[in-house]
Design a binder for these strands. Structure first.
Length: 423
RNA sequence: GGAGAGAUGGCCGAGUGGUCUAAGGCAGCGGUUUUGAAAACCGCCGACGGUGCAAGCUGUCCAGGGGUUCGAAUCCCUUUCUCUCCGCCA
């Protein structure tokens, strides 16, 4: 969410952001609602002021004066009772529109509509040249017995899967490796609730725009989160954090749930796009300062890259274009791992600076050293998401006989197992 | 799931219909004193909105929502959360 005063004063900037981010919201409707809201407040506040004035006069008034005052107060109350619902309706319109206004992309962000408009920043590692026909991860998982595909699809539906045996252990291993790396770099491990109220999703910017993406549990008015970013950011909703306590750096470990409502028919095969997965996510609360935020952003990015280096996976880093950024994001880097089965770099990490966007929605403030209050900046990045990360691990490290030689860093987490072979 | 007790500013805590512009304390900020610091003393000190060049004026907020009343932190209803006991349970 942006400051309405900022929106009024920078309407053109906001209009450009809406266009470039391909958001569906009517800025003029918002400005109209804002005007109507403020006009309404002036009228209602004047009535309320008189009402308060009369209420304070009555105890001091004589017996003779009282009936007149009470009469006037009753009239005013009737007026107010008529005006308040009208104002509330205007405010509701205003609030709904405010929630759909995107944050402003930073100047370095390329303007573009689709993935192809992202700007490559660097490539690290070289995709391996195979002297045999490499298998894709589906074949490898089947060959090595890492996944049960058919069972889950019968009782849990499409995009479901079960990791089995070494497959399940591999997920634990890579997850634990990520946790250890982040803890060593000063992040605090959190295993948060994954069932949350609507407020957490609105507060982090996933609602109202992404309502279709979330699983809802109607009976309890709870939603399953698609990332632990949601509970981690919400952990400090309504808090006033001391400047000295910042930055706060969390590593969230959770199951994530996504309906993939807009992806029907896309990536239905294998482990790439699934409804339920495990993710270690990095979340930062920092001072509202662009320079400090930039430093944190690149530290988060570096953590993800370290992970991929340990996993010996070639990857590339791209600066996402405006059309590929979420509503609240002001700068986003995507890290794409090389996946031989897709013959492409594909997204495994997403590193975002959100500015004050989430803090305004979730009411997360900082008391600065000079005593003033401000909103914090939030940032987030994937550390590792499984099973998607299993794809480049298996595909890049496969051998001609269908076995997989695990990257060295993973071996201790695999109880010393160096190679996956069919059992 | 059942019964009961609670929720007040950054924190603790008083406040059972008008004088609440929320006592008092802690923390914070400024000052006096001091070589410096501490202590003591004095003063300041909630958030958000509207309006205004500004000074100021004004509205809302005592967990959330609704109601009663000329007037609600206070009375009523409701939701959420916390605590105690019982039940169930990995």
């Amino acid at each position: 969410m942006l400051d309405i005063a900022f929106i009024r004063q920078n309407a053109d900037t906001v209009r450009a952001a809406i266009k470039n981010k391909r958001c569906d919201v009517d800025l003029d409707a918002l400005l109209d609602a804002d005007r109507a809201r403020r006009d309404g407040i002036v009228v209602v506040d004047a009535k309320r002021a008189r009402k308060n004035q009369i209420a304070s006069l009555i105890p001091k008034a004589t017996k003779e004066e009282r009936p007149t005052l009470i009469e006037e107060a009753k009239t005013i109350r009737t007026d107010i009772e008529k005006l308040e619902p009208e104002l509330a309706a205007v405010v509701k319109t205003f609030d709904d529109l405010m929630l759909r206004i995107p944050s402003i992309p930073r100047p370095e962000v390329p303007i573009g509509a689709v993935e192809a408009d992202n700007v490559e920043v660097r490539k690290v590692g070289t995709p391996r040249t195979f002297d045999f026909t490499p298998k894709d991860h589906v074949e490898l998982c089947t060959h090595l017995g890492l996944v049960n595909w058919e069972g889950p699809r019968k009782f849990a539906g499409g995009r479901s899967y079960a990791l089995i045996g070494m497959g399940a252990l591999l997920e634990l291993a890579v997850t634990r490796m990520a946790v250890d790396l982040l803890m060593a770099r000063g992040l605090t491990l959190v295993t948060p609730p994954v069932m949350v109220r609507e407020r957490a999703l609105t507060g982090t910017g996933f609602f109202p725009g992404g309502r279709e993406e979330a699983y809802a549990m109607e009976a309890d008015e709870l939603f399953l989160v698609g990332t632990s970013e949601v509970p981690l950011v919400s952990l400090h909703a309504d808090d006033i954090l001391e400047e000295s306590a910042l930055p706060i750096r969390y590593a969230g470990l959770s199951q994530c749930f996504r309906r993939e409502a807009g992806a029907s028919g896309k990536d239905t095969k294998g482990l790439y796009r699934v409804h339920q997965f495990t993710k270690v996510e990095q979340v930062i609360f920092g001072l509202p300062d662009e320079e400090a935020a930039e430093k944190e952003h690149y530290a988060l990015l570096a953590n993800a890259e370290s992970l991929l280096e340990k996993l010996e996976i070639p990857y590339r880093v791209a600066l996402a274009c405006t059309g590929e950024m979420g509503i609240g994001v002001t700068r986003k880097h995507e890290v794409e791992s090389w996946m031989p089965g897709r013959n492409a770099y594909s997204e495994t990490h997403s590193c975002s600076t959100m500015g004050e966007f989430q803090a305004r929605r979730s009411n997360i403030r900082v008391r600065k050293a000079d005593g003033s209050l401000g909103f914090v900046y939030t940032l987030n990045n994937t550390a590792v998401a499984s099973p998607r990360i299993l794809i480049p691990i298996l595909e890049n490290h496969q051998n001609a006989d269908g076995s997989v030689t695990l990257p060295k860093a993973l071996v201790p987490y695999m109880n010393g197992i160096e190679k996956l072979t069919p059992r």
